[in-house]
């Protein structure tokens, strides 16, 4: 009974009461208060339909995607302490991460987490489709979700270059050369040959979309820096905003879908 006594004492202190303004969530009033009064928990509604909490119905894939996104943010920030995005250092920094840094699995968690996130996003979309959850009133949120799916793939793709090994550089070479073939906007795409006045080529390898992506004509050091910024700052910011919209709309559109 001593443990109970200590727990009761801690709950009675001024410090505890200043942090948790309600009693333990053992009765209806406090269960409402804990969800409504906590900045993180209030993503949830206070009550929801029973079908919406069943794992067999939701598979929890959306929630896991968000969790993995947070885990990737944390591990990513930790990795940034040891990584320099230059052709000279990048590869050696990755080796150092494995060999000279305690908890040498940080990069593994980040990499496998990225792959896992792609899988959970796909399965989330699969579930949402199968339960018809894109139907009115949730059409807009489905669109936001599709864009988030693309951004997830782009995040993973930009991160793929950062180890600066053979796997990275050639995967990005193949991928970015598809941008070269964009109609009218890439110099190797249909329409580019038509945009030519005499000897003056309007769409060349120095001003097309691939050049913008790589800051060069091939995957080199400027591309590494550009992908690093896209991976660590640019795309995560957009994703964060869209996740906020996505969650907000789930609540506003009536929570997890259920039969009308």
């Amino acid at each position: 009974m001593a443990g109970k006594g200590i727990a009761d004492y801690v709950r009675g202190t001024q410090v505890w009461k200043s942090i948790f303004r309600h009693g333990p969530p053992e009765n209806a009033r406090n269960r409402a208060a804990v969800v409504a009064g906590n900045v993180f928990l209030h993503l949830h509604p206070i009550k929801l339909k029973k079908s919406g909490v069943q794992l067999g119905y939701t598979w929890c894939m959306g929630g896991l995607t968000f969790f993995i996104f947070l885990a990737l943010t944390v591990t990513g920030v930790l990795l940034m302490f040891y990584y320099r995005p230059t052709a000279e250092y990048a590869y050696n920094d990755i080796i150092a991460l494995k060999e000279h840094v305690p908890l040498g699995i940080m990069r593994e968690i980040h990499r496998w987490g990225a792959h896992a996130m792609v899988i959970t996003v796909w399965l989330h979309m699969f579930r949402v489709f199968m339960t018809g959850s894109y139907k009115p009133p949730r059409e807009f949120n489905w669109g936001v979700g599709v864009i988030l799916l693309v951004l997830t793939l782009l995040l993973s793709f930009t991160g793929y270059l950062l180890p600066w090994d053979q796997l990275a550089i050639w995967a990005i070479t193949v991928g970015s050369n598809m941008a070269k073939a964009t109609p009218f906007m890439g110099h190797g795409g249909p329409g580019a040959a038509l945009a030519q006045i005499g000897d003056f080529v309007m769409v060349s390898d120095k001003n097309d979309v691939r050049f913008q992506l790589l800051a060069g004509r091939f995957v080199g050091e400027p591309a590494l820096l550009r992908f690093y910024i896209l991976h660590c700052v640019f795309i995560p910011c957009i994703v964060a905003v869209l996740i906020a919209i996505h969650f907000w709309r789930i609540r506003k559109d009536g929570g997890i879908s259920a039969p009308l």
Binding site: V35, L41, I46, S51, C60, G63, F67, A116
Partner: peptide, 28 residues
């Protein structure tokens, strides 16, 4: 019985907690 409303705490929050722990263990 499935349309009935239940409290998020503990029904939803604990499911999420369980899934998060399972996912963390899996990744590690």
């Amino acid at each position: 019985e499935n349309r009935e409303k239940v409290w998020s705490w503990p029904n939803l929050v604990y499911t999420e907690l369980f899934m998060i722990i399972a996912c963390t263990i899996f990744l590690i």
